[in-house]
């Protein structure tokens, strides 16, 4: 009888998942050992999958450069820094001073600057929300944000005044009670969704690993 390969993959995923899941609820040594081995293999495969992803990134930009598509000079720069960093990291190690130099002076400043842009973007977005949208949900969103900002940052004057203290208490009340209630509901909903999604995979209803 010829068995379809997809059935084998589904059986593997379900069996492995069942072993790992049972380990959450049963403290059995054999089960714990099997679970540890499987998780160890998963971590190893995750690292190798990261490498495959990087190779794919290399291939995509290489084709852009070789075919001189639109924006190919940027892809060339990307490939240059990618290969330089990878080679240096493989040769000297990721904890070498060279890599740290590049990390501290190239990657980190760029990433931090991108995060700094977010401050302007969020301010502009908040300004546009209050000027254009006038529904209750938007009003609650912006209003609560304004109150929390008032209670978070220092004031020009009267940072320790009564008003500042009042807004700080309002901020704490909003963040610790009102937002906490909504956050708990969101967390429960996320957990339920994660359980449903995970069970679908374990029961082979969803097969993201392919056929």
């Amino acid at each position: 009888m010829r068995v379809r390969a997809s059935l084998i993959w589904a059986a593997v995923a379900s069996a492995v998942g069942l072993i790992v899941l049972l380990g959450f609820f049963f403290e059995i040594e054999a089960l714990r050992l099997a679970r540890q081995i499987l998780v160890d293999w998963a971590v190893l495969l995750a690292a190798w999958a990261l490498m495959l992803g990087l190779l794919n990134l290399l291939g995509v930009h290489w084709s852009k450069v070789s075919q001189q598509e639109k924006g190919w000079p940027y892809s060339a720069v990307l490939l240059l820094f990618f290969l330089v960093t990878l080679i240096l990291g493989l040769l000297f190690g990721p904890d070498s001073p060279v890599i740290l130099f590049l990390f501290n002076n190239v990657q980190l400043p760029i990433e931090a600057s991108l995060m700094a842009l977010l401050a302007v973007t969020l301010t502009v977005a908040g300004f546009r929300v209050v000027t254009r949208r006038r529904d209750l949900v938007s009003l609650v969103f912006v209003g609560v944000g304004f109150l929390v900002l008032l209670g978070t940052g220092p004031w020009v004057i009267g940072s320790e005044g009564v008003l500042n203290t009042f807004f700080r208490d309002v901020r704490n009340w909003l963040a610790q009670v009102w937002a906490a209630g909504g956050a708990r509901g969101i967390l429960l909903g996320v957990a339920l969704g994660a359980i449903a999604t995970g069970l679908r995979v374990l029961l082979a209803a969803d097969r993201p690993y392919g056929e």
Binding site: G126, L149, G153, P154
Partner: peptide, 16 residues
């Protein structure tokens, strides 16, 4: 940080 937050608060207030 405080000055930036103040500007943001001002922008939100003016926008409102």
């Amino acid at each position: 940080f405080g000055s930036g937050l103040f500007v943001a608060e001002l922008a939100l207030a003016l926008g409102a």
